[in-house]
Amino acid sequence: MNISSKIVEDAVKSFSSLPGVGRKTALRLVLHLLNDKYDLADEMSLGLSKLKEVRFCKQCHNISDNDVCEICTSQARNRQTVCVVESIRDVIAIEETGYFSGLYHVLGGIISPLNGIGPENLNIRSLLERIERQGVEELIMAISPTIDGDTTIYYLTRMIPSHVKVSTIARGVAFGGELEYADEFTLGRSIASRVPYTVQNNQL
């Protein structure tokens, strides 16, 4: 690809350094911005330069515009229940469901010494402090169902005071899914972690 403008060439280079964006797509995006009549490029450049101001919430380590994020400061949320997740993406995914009204705590990964991540490399100390200070009553562990994920849950459970209730998110057969199509591992786990059935349970 030979581009007659160095400016456009540089812009294409920047776009194509994004994950999932090839050179062809990058060129298409840049040409779109060039032809755009609504100052989209200006708007974007302003927004992009502001990204530097984004920080991490002092309390839950989620992304935030202020010292403490909007979820942590919201009066509408239940402060006694904290959902422990690996990453910011998990917070966004759970928020999208609209089913959770407690607070979060982002660990920043899971324990894996092979990858150089020990307990001290994660936001664990701040979680323990929060539990005391904030009077947390329940922790929901929304962590990958892998051996390392389980190790992380086990470790956390060992470190927190015994009066705090710990639960893990249910892992099992998809709602509306038929049992014969579930793989045996998922099905086995669903049976092991079965839940009591009541009439109230029947409603979503």
Binding site: I111, P113, G116, G118, P119, E120, I124, T151, Y155, R158
Partner: peptide, 21 residues
């Protein structure tokens, strides 16, 4: 994983707790 933790040479209380885990 346990061996990797041992290889790191760290010996803080939280590392010991992890080894016990």
């Amino acid at each position: 994983q346990r061996n990797a933790m041992l290889k790191s040479g760290q010996s803080s209380g939280s590392v010991k707790a992890l080894l016990e885990v």
